[in-house]
């Protein structure tokens, strides 16, 4: 029950952050990506604010032995650069550039009850399932 509360509160705060930052507006996202056009560098400030806050916050949090609602902290441990990482990032970038949505803002868009984010999210879930099937069939982590 407490873990559900942890998820809900974090998700809500994350969504408010995306809205405030302008990430939930595909026009602002593509205006950031369009460095050769009428460039809006605002989203670089989102990355800076997010990374600095997370880096400082993680240091404080990890000084505690364990999270509040779970027995352990769970971090990715891999350091190898492999094909799926690079190919996945290329495909993700193409989709992000085409639609102006990455996964978080698309889900926030669902709450705005418009058809385009709904369609995007449905397609995204299909793509995720296809990748999970591909990975389990190919033995990719």
């Amino acid at each position: 029950m407490t873990r559900i509360l942890g998820g809900l509160m974090s998700g809500l705060l994350f969504g408010i952050g995306l809205l405030a930052a302008g990430m939930a507006d595909p026009n602002k996202v593509t205006a950031f990506l369009d460095i050769a056009g009428h460039w809006d560098p605002s989203l670089a400030f989102v990355i800076v604010g997010g990374v600095i806050t997370t880096a400082l916050g993680y240091r404080l949090v990890l000084k505690r032995g364990r999270p509040l609602f779970e027995p352990d902290f769970l971090f990715p441990t891999r350091t190898d650069i492999d094909g799926p990482l690079v190919i996945g990032a290329v495909l993700f970038g193409i989709g992000w550039g085409l639609g102006g949505y990455c996964p978080g803002p698309a889900l926030v868009g669902l709450g705005q009850a418009n058809v385009p984010p709904l369609l995007f999210v449905a397609a995204m879930l299909l793509g995720m399932m296809a990748a999970r099937i591909t990975k389990s069939a190919g033995g990719i982590k």
């Binding site: 990482l85 190919i87 996945g88 989709g95 992000w96 299909l126 793509g127 995720m128 591909t134």
Partner: peptide, 16 residues
């Protein structure tokens, strides 16, 4: 947007 959604879903899971 449908194509973009498929690419974002597939790419983010493949690239972790």
């Amino acid at each position: 947007l449908g194509v973009a959604g498929l690419l974002v879903g597939f790419g983010t899971v493949l690239g972790n």
